[in-house]
Design a protein around this nucleic acid. Sequence first.
DNA 1: GACCAACATTACCGTTTTGTTACCGTTTTG
DNA 2: CAAAACGGTAACAAAACGGTAATGTTGGTC
Lengths: 228, 228
Amino acid sequence: METVLIIEDDSTMLRGLTDNFTAAGYAVLAAADGEAGLNAALDARPDLIILDIMLPQINGYEICRLLRKEKLDMPILMLTAKGEESDIILGLNLGADDYVTKPFSRKELLARAAAFLRRRRQQQTSVYQFGNFTLDLSACSLAQDGRPMKLSPKEFKLLGFFAANKGRALTRDEILNNVWGYNSFAGHRSVDRFVTTLRNKIEPDPHLPIYIHTLREIGYKFDPCDPE
Amino acid sequence: METVLIIEDDSTMLRGLTDNFTAAGYAVLAAADGEAGLNAALDARPDLIILDIMLPQINGYEICRLLRKEKLDMPILMLTAKGEESDIILGLNLGADDYVTKPFSRKELLARAAAFLRRRRQQQTSVYQFGNFTLDLSACSLAQDGRPMKLSPKEFKLLGFFAANKGRALTRDEILNNVWGYNSFAGHRSVDRFVTTLRNKIEPDPHLPIYIHTLREIGYKFDPCDPE
DNA sequence: GACCAACATTACCGTTTTGTTACCGTTTTG
DNA sequence: CAAAACGGTAACAAAACGGTAATGTTGGTC
C-alpha cells in the first residue's frame, strides 16, 4: 500500500487530512511538528509528503530543503495559508512538487496527490510473484530464482492472464477470449495443450500441479496457495 | 535544450507565454488548436506541455487523454479560466500533472514548469554504460573501450531509445513512434533491419545477442544483464 | 551526371510456434 | 459395472515470425 506522510501542526487539520487519506485507501503517517516529520520521512520513506509551511521550530521550506539534501526524492506537496507568489516560487525552487493554498478543497488535494502517485506507479513495472517465480509483464520475462526462463508468446500471455486472475475459476471460453482473442478459431483443446506445456515448465511435478489447477467441466484456476 | 509545447488558442496569451518561456531559456513550440498541438506533441516529443482546456474542436481533456493513450509521459500542466473543483479533478485524473487557473502569475507558472523539468532532469541521464560501451546522448557518440564507433543517425537514435528503456519490452510500434516519429511511413520490418545492423556493430556474436534481445510477436528488449 | 551513404522495402529461408488430432487413463454417470 | 465424458499429452503439419541479403529510393556532394 502507498504511504502518505502528513506534516501539519494544526491538530484539527491534521486529523481531517488523515481521515481523508485513510478513507481514500492510503496508509497515513502523521507528524505534528517539523522534527517529527523529518524523522518520519527519513525513517519510513513514504511515497508522498503533504507538508505544511507554517510549523513550529523548523518550517516547511527548511524541511523540504533537508529532505532533498538527503536525496529523498518522493513528491512533496506544500500546503499553506499564504497565497504569496514569491512563497510559491520559493517552495517550488526548494524542491517541492506542488503547492496548494488554504483554504483548499479536500477533493482537489486528494486528486493532486493521486496524480503524483499514479505517475510514480507508472514508472515501476508490473510484477507478479508466485512460488520462486517472478513474472514481469513489462519486461516480458519470467524468472525462477532469478534465472530467466523461456516461454513462447502464447505461453507467456496465458501465464500472464492466470497471474492477473489468481484464485478465480476461469472457463476455457474466458481464457480463449482473453488470451487468444475474440476472433480466433482455436478450439477448446488448445487451451489444454498450452496448460500442459506451461505446467511442464513451471510445476515441480506436472502431474500434481500446485499452480495451475484443473476444474473439471469448468476450466482452470491459477492459485499458488491452494494445494487442492 | 528543453522544449516546451504550448497549446493555447488565445493568440495574445500564446504570444505572451511563448515570450516568457523563451526568455527563461526554453525552446518553445506553439500550437493554436488541439489538432496542431496533438501532432506537435507526437512529432516533436517536448519535455513539457502547457495545455489550455478551452480549445476549438478538440478540448484539452481530450488531448490529455489521447497523449497518455499514446504512451507519451511528459508532464502536462493544464491551464484554464475555470476554477471548478470538479474540472481540476477531472484533469488530474486524465493524466495531467498540474493545474493552474487563470488569471495566474507568469512567475508561478514558470516556477511550476521548472519544478517538473528539474525533476525530469534528475531522473534522466544522458550517458549510458553497458558492457564495454559508453553511449553519450548529449555528445551524440558511442565508444567501445574508449574507441569511438560510427553509427548512422537512425542507428544512434534507436540505440539511444533502447538504452533509455533498458529492460522494458518494446513493441515495434513503440519503437517506430519514438525513433522514426509518429508520422513516418516506415514499415515494421524496417525496425528489424536496423536491429540487425546495430547487432552487427555492438554484439560480440550477432547470432547470440547479449544486448538486444528478440521478443517474438512483441518486438525487442535491450537488456545488458539478461543472458536470455 | 556519377557517386555515395542512409534508409525503406521486399523476398527468401530457416526456425519456432501453434492448432488439431488421436490415443489413453481417469472420473463421472446411469 | 459399462458407457460416456473429460482432460493429459505426444505427434504432426501448417502457419507465423524474424534474420538478412538484395533491391529500390532518396538526398546530398563532388
